[in-house]
Structures are given as structure tokens and as C-alpha cells.
Design a protein around this nucleic acid. Structure first.
Lengths: 229, 229
DNA sequence: CGACTCCTTGACAGCGTTCAACAGTAGTGG
DNA sequence: CCACTACTGTTGAACGCTGTCAAGGAGTCG
């Protein structure tokens, strides 16, 4: 039997946003990063804008003793590296083998369309960060895990089988938890029949009850008929 | 004996930013909010830009069961209400009696200078949110409290005596803690000689050892000579 | 096959929450 | 001016969620 697995990345790219940022397509170059390698580092000058073609990227901050907070994951179609201003405020590296298109930021002339397109992207990042704040500050481990799954599900266009590129540790560092707690939360959701963990490495997840998952993500008092983004 | 208490607000206003956003000064109007009243609500259309003249404002999100996450505090000189896009993603209300200058956003013509000034402000909000993420996701109660004090100290221009407008509950909801934990953390810092809590309502704080406080905020492995923003 | 990584699960500990009591202050109205 | 109430903040005690430590299985790679 055939099931839809994740989504076709090419459908997600938004050419309008690209051309608004850097007019000529010819200024974009393809580049590949091996799994685990750094795309850019925190505090480095932000020279390029990236659009992810294939693979996955995580952006994070580190504390001096190694604690890590992942700010977000970038999936095919996403534009990133721009939401940082002139200097990167995060480190970005490839979770799996990754292909990007990149353009020098100096090729952006600072015209109205470019600044407006940048504003739109930065604003989107801000909105994501704001939701992330509520998650980290005020939600339980189970709620965070449910919210993470729903976010990935939405961004992968609700595939029948979701293939996560990131490890349990990555998820934990995104959710402000430990990998053990994430693992336990996923097991709990499995035991409740909301999802099933498939495949040998357990990175394939099938969601069986999205409404119930959303109910968990929104907290105990969220009514069944409630809408969510 | 006289000590410097907080800072003179008027020195903080940045006329350049204001005029870049809305050219004519005449388009700004003064408005007052009583302590506890709402400036704007989440999901409302963002009609105005605000500059805080006096008082203090908190912006926050609520979960359906009442859990609250404060995204930030606005102090005299700050511009806010713009970092939300077309629709407010936070509720904002006055912590104490507050005076603002406001201008209709429709008076912003979307020209290059205005969009560029907006981008700068939104980018600043994003940077703040990103640091907040690390705080909420990966720092302990004592570290969060130390970081909060340093942020306020910096924004009030390191006064000899810091007068906080917000309650322990507000601080807790900003730091993702309970008010009891914040109170205990402050007592711990007092017992260590890093600060003293003064005044009847304990909202006056004098910092005695900023380097040590910074050492706590950055985590156990931060070396003494380390730089911080 | 051996070394390594990734994930799950169990047992236990601890940090922060919850529940509670108490004191001091502000606000209100008589 | 005082009584009354509501609010704010501190502190103590016990609980519980999540972290820590540990073991074991399963997959991958050379």
C-alpha cells in the first residue's frame, strides 16, 4: 500500500519572496552541506541569504556550559539567515545532508521591495518566536511535545507518515526539555492511541487523532471545537 | 543623602526613530491609561504606534486556563505596538498609570524610510525574543532572576536604586516561574550580598555586585572576565 | 564483529510548584 | 481617623513533574 510521506519540497518554494529579495535569479548559487556541518556561526557577519532546497537545518544558541536552545528548524522551501540582522545571532547547522540556494546580501540594494520583503520574513520569525515563548514559559512537557508535532505536521503539509529529520535530543533542545522526557511524552501519546511510532529509528510518526493532539497542545481547558493555527 | 533613582525618561526618547516612522510631529497625540487598563488586545487590528512617555506597559499572551506569558515590559522611551504586524499578537496593558504618544499607522505611507525604521524595530524585538527563548528554555530560576535584574538595570541606565513598576507575579510570568520562586530567588541574592531589597513594598532594589550578578545570569561556567551584552 | 549512535524504559533525586500561614501596605468608606 | 478589605510579598512544608543516572536493545558503519 502506498501512503503519502512528508511532502514534495518544490511545492513549498515561494519564488515571489526570492525575487523580491534578490531580483536576478542568476545571483543565486547552489551549495551543499553534509550532515552535522555548520552553515553559519553565531556572531559571524551575515553575508548570505539562504533558501533551503533539500534537507533540514537547526538554528540555536549555546550557553557556556553546553546547554543548547534550538530556536527553530528550517525545512525545504524556507528562507533563513536573514532574520538575524547584520550579524548572526544563532548558529545554524545541517541536521542531515542539505542543499541550499544562497545569495550574497550585498546584492540586495536596500530598495523598497527588498526591505519590505525582509520585513515580512523577519515579522514571521518574530511571530514564531513569540509562540515559542509561551510554549517554553508556560506549557507542560506533554503540551510542548503535542505542539511540536502539530507544527511539524502543518509544515510538512499533514502527510500520512511524518518523517522527522531531527533526533530526540534536537526536539528536546527545541522544547526546553531532556531527550528522555520527549521520549516519554511520545510514548504516552502512542499509548493513548493518538499516534504511532514507526520504523526502526522511530523517526517516522503517523498521527491518528489530530483534534485530540490539538486539545492537548492548547491546555486542559481548551474546548473541543476550538480553532488553532 | 541623595541617590540617583531610576533615570530621567526624557533622555531615552529617540526622536529620530519617531520621525522616521511618522514624519510630522503633529500627528502624534498624547493619551493616558490608568493602572491595569488595556492598551490593546490580542487579535485586534493594529491601528496605532505607541511611544511610552511615562509609566510601564506589559505585553503578554494567555492560555485558555489563565496561564500567562509576558513577552516584555515597555519603559519610558520605548516604541511598541508596531512589532505585531497588522494584527496584535499580544495583549498590552498598563502596569501603572501610563502616558503614551500615539500615531495612526495609516499615517505611515509605507515609504522606504518608514519601512526601514519598522524593520529596525521589529528586528530589535526579535533579538529580545531570541534571548528570552534561551532564558525560558535553558536557564534555572536563579539565572533567570539575575538576567531579569540585569536587563532592567541596563534599561533604567544602572540607577543606584532601581524602582520596579511590576509585581512579583509580573516578573514570574515574564520568567516562566511562580511568584514564590521569584521571591525566593531575590531573597537568595539578598542573602549573598548581591543586592538589597528596600522600601516597604520591596520594589526598590539596589544592586551591589553587578559582575557577580552577571556571572550568575550566564551560568556556572561563565568565566569572570567574560563579556555580556 | 566491535564501536558508536539513537531511542526507550526504569529508578530515584531535586528544582520548582502548590498549598498555606503570616505580616505589612494600600485603598476605601464610614 | 480608624476599621475593614484587598493586595502584595515572604517564608515554610510537602508534593510532583521533569531531570539525572543507568541499563539495555536495536541500527549503522567501518
Amino acid at each position: 500500500m502506498l501512503v503519502r510521506v512528508n511532502a514534495n519540497p518544490s511545492h513549498k518554494s515561494v519564488p515571489t519572496e526570492l525575487t523580491a529579495l534578490v531580483g536576478q535569479t542568476s545571483l543565486w548559487h547552489e551549495f551543499k552541506y553534509q550532515r552535522g556541518t555548520e552553515v553559519f556561526g553565531e556572531a559571524e557577519p551575515a553575508e548570505y541569504v539562504y533558501q533551503l532546497r533539500a534537507g533540514a537545518v537547526r538554528t540555536y544558541k549555546l550557553l557556556s556550559d553546553g546547554r543548547r536552545q534550538i530556536g527553530g528548524f528550517h525545512l525545504p522551501g524556507d528562507i533563513f539567515g536573514l532574520e538575524n540582522g547584520d550579524v548572526h545571532r544563532f548558529t545554524a547547522d545541517a541536521i542531515i545532508d542539505t542543499t541550499v540556494w544562497l545569495a550574497r546580501r550585498e546584492n540586495m540594494f536596500g530598495g523598497l521591495t527588498e526591505v519590505a520583503a525582509t520585513l515580512k520574513l523577519v515579522n514571521r520569525s518574530l511571530e514564531h518566536a513569540e509562540n515559542h515563548l509561551l510554549l517554553l514559559g508556560r506549557q507542560t512537557a506533554l503540551e510542548r511535545t503535542a505542539a511540536f508535532l502539530l507544527e511539524m505536521d502543518r509544515r510538512l503539509q499533514q502527510p500520512a507518515l511524518m518523517i522527522l529529520p531531527m533526533s530526540r535530543r534536537d526536539i528536546a533542545d527545541y522544547l526546553g526539555l531532556t531527550l528522555e522526557t520527549v521520549s516519554r511524552a511520545l510514548s504516552t501519546l502512542r499509548d493513548r492511541g493518538i499516534l504511532s511510532l514507526e520504523g526502526k529509528m522511530q523517526r517516522k510518526i503517523a498521527l491518528h487523532d489530530r483534534p485530540k493532539l490539538a486539545g492537548i497542545a492548547l491546555g486542559p481547558h481548551a474546548l473541543p471545537g476550538r480553532k488553532f493555527e
